[in-house]
Computed example of a mutant assay.
Amino acid sequence: MPELISTSQLSRIVLKGFKSIVECDIELTQLNIFIGCNGAGKSNFIGFFRMIEQMLENKLQVFVSRQGGPDAILHFGRKITEQLEVELYFGHNGYFATFEPTQDNRLMFSKESFWWDMSGEKRISSGHFETKASQGTGTGSDMYVLPAMKQWRVYHFHDTSDSAYVKQPHGINDNAYLRADGRNLAAFLYLLKEKYSESYQQIVKTVRLVAPFFGDFYLRPSPQNNDVIELEWFEQGQDIPFKAHHFSDGTLRFICLATVFLQPNLFYKPATILVDEPELGLHPYAITVLASLMRAAAQKKQVIVSTQSVELLNEFAAKDVIVVDRDDGKSLLRRLKEEDLYEWLEDYSLGELWKKNILGGRPSR
């Protein structure tokens, strides 16, 4: 299995009792493509990372409440699953946590610790409701684990309706990083245009591959309020700016995705990029371009993507793919082995094998 480039990237995850995932132990590499049918548990796997993001912002209980309480997070509730167990490994270091539901519908840390293979597990604390990981353990793990956990970003660009945040005016200084739903896309692109022109031009040229009518973004402070900006653009050969709602849903999603995978290494750079079903609304050619962006990004970052697209799957190797099946209400995750599919792949693509149910990840009774 390929070695990870950076110890800031997740090399292995052990997860027990999270929603449909009763138990999984998966090794992760630079490029990880999750496939499976509707309801198999792909989005639950990605959703776990959202929980950790919220936890690191001291908003774990807010996350739990918005999910519907501990019983909506624990597999089939507390009567079936008494606790949630998490082990995250970053090379030789790791983060362990165990969560238990309380009578007042919160999740409590019954254990939180760092791990280092030279000295084993070092407990941080227990009995608390928001993470105390920042306190550290006084070991070498303190330098690696928490910073690594803060360097992943979960993106979802499903909402492209008229009221979507990405289409609304927003603060021009909201540009430290691209937010999960792209709500600060214009501010972020404005920063790239002013300070990172090479990355900005790459994004523009890539968007033109998928949308040949696209000329360039029109990025400027609002004439009414210089502290505000919104997404505007020109069509090729024209000088009349259009608003974001003149983009098709697929084009707008692709712009967000191109920005994610072509963003330069800023201060808040993501070491791990996670995207749930990026193919939504995209033309097959756009999916091909997207796959090339993902492969290129995976040379320097870790990429974790869930998909139901045969076209997207066809762009990757078997070793990149993790299949998610659902059996008796449980999500089962396994990485494909190229040697098991060698003869099949001489005659068929991965997508064709998926449709033939050779790979799994298909609906079953």
Score class of each variant (00 low, 15 high):
residue 239 D to H: 13
residue 278 P to L: 01
residue 186 A to C: 12
residue 258 A to H: 01
residue 196 Y to M: 11
residue 199 S to P: 06
residue 272 T to C: 15
residue 230 E to V: 05
residue 243 K to W: 04
residue 255 I to E: 03
residue 242 F to M: 12
residue 239 D to K: 14
residue 223 P to L: 04
residue 226 N to V: 08
residue 241 P to I: 12
residue 220 R to P: 01
residue 187 A to N: 04
residue 249 D to V: 06
residue 253 R to W: 00
residue 257 L to M: 12
residue 190 Y to A: 10
residue 206 T to E: 13
residue 218 Y to D: 11
residue 240 I to H: 12
residue 246 H to N: 14
residue 264 P to C: 04
residue 198 E to R: 15
residue 244 A to N: 08
residue 278 P to E: 01
residue 211 A to K: 07
residue 210 V to F: 08
residue 204 V to M: 05
residue 226 N to E: 13
residue 188 F to C: 13
residue 219 L to T: 08
residue 254 F to M: 09
residue 251 T to I: 14
residue 194 E to A: 15
residue 184 N to I: 05
residue 225 N to W: 03
residue 191 L to K: 15
residue 194 E to G: 11
residue 199 S to K: 07
residue 187 A to Y: 04
residue 234 F to W: 11
residue 240 I to E: 11
residue 256 C to D: 04
residue 228 V to M: 14
residue 217 F to P: 02
residue 209 L to V: 10
residue 266 L to M: 12
residue 208 R to G: 04
residue 217 F to G: 09
residue 266 L to R: 08
residue 245 H to I: 12
residue 243 K to C: 11
residue 216 D to M: 10
residue 256 C to T: 01
residue 262 L to N: 14
residue 247 F to T: 13
residue 227 D to W: 03
residue 184 N to P: 08
residue 219 L to R: 08
residue 233 W to R: 02
residue 208 R to T: 08
residue 270 P to M: 09
residue 260 V to I: 15
residue 260 V to C: 02
residue 217 F to A: 13
